[in-house]
Amino acid sequence: MDIRHSGSTPSNTAPADYFTGTVWQEAICDPTETKAVIALLVTFAPNARTNWHKHALGQTLYVTSGSGLIQSRGGPVNTIRAGDRIWIPAGEEHWHGATPYNLMSHIAIQEVEDGTATHWLEPVTDAQYQGQS
C-alpha cells in the first residue's frame, strides 16, 4: 500500500506542446502503478485548452469544478459543468478546456495501449475555440 497525502505531490504545468494557455496536472494514477490506466486531475485557466487529440481506447472526463468547453471534430462546441461526465469513444478526435471567463477542472481517465494513452494532434485555433469553424 502506498498512501500519498494531499499536498505531498507537486502540481505540474501541462506540456506546452499539447495545450494552449495555463494548465495544471496532478496525477491520480499512472501506468507505473496500474499498468493500464492513467487518471489525472487537470485544471485549466480561462481560455486554456488541449490540442485536438484522440485515445485508442476512449476517455472519460468527470468535471469537478467550474465550466468548460468540449468539441468533437466536426461537431458543435458544448458547454460542460461541474458534475458532468463525458465519454469520448476510441479514436474520436476532440478537445476540451475552460470557458473564456472561468477555471475548469476535470478528472481525465484513459487506458493505455501499446505504452500510450493519447495521440496528440494540432492546436485548436481561436476560431475553433469560439465555435466559428
Rank of each mutant, 00 (worst) to 15 (best):
T32M: 15
Y62D: 00
D126Q: 13
L103D: 12
A14Y: 03
H119C: 07
Q130A: 09
D126W: 08
D17E: 14
I3G: 00
S105K: 07
H94I: 11
T9E: 12
E33V: 14
G7R: 02
T79I: 13
Q130W: 04
F44I: 01
S67W: 03
K35H: 08
P31W: 03
A48T: 06
A108K: 05
L40E: 04
G21Y: 08
E113R: 09
N78T: 06
S6A: 13
H5T: 05
P31D: 06
A127V: 03
W87R: 12
T9R: 14
A82I: 13
L103V: 09
S11P: 01
N47E: 13
E92Y: 02
L103G: 00
Q25S: 08
S72T: 15
R85A: 13
T9M: 14
R81F: 00
L121W: 06
G131F: 11
N12D: 03
P15T: 09
T125I: 03
P123C: 01
A16P: 14
A16I: 11
V77Y: 05
D126I: 12
Y62V: 10
V112I: 13
L61Q: 01
T60E: 10
I3R: 11
A90S: 13
I3V: 11
T22S: 14
Y129M: 01
F19H: 04
R4Y: 04
G68N: 08
H5G: 00
Q25H: 14
K54L: 13
L69P: 01
N47Y: 15
L40D: 02
H94K: 13
F19Y: 15
D126Y: 06
W52M: 00
T43E: 15
V63M: 02
L40Y: 12
A14T: 13
I80H: 02
G115T: 13
S6P: 00
T13H: 14
A14E: 05
H96K: 07
E111A: 09
R85K: 09
D30I: 12
T34S: 14
E92T: 15
T20K: 10
V124E: 00
H96S: 00
A27D: 10
D114Q: 14
T118A: 05
G115P: 08
A48L: 03
N47S: 12
T60C: 03
P76G: 02
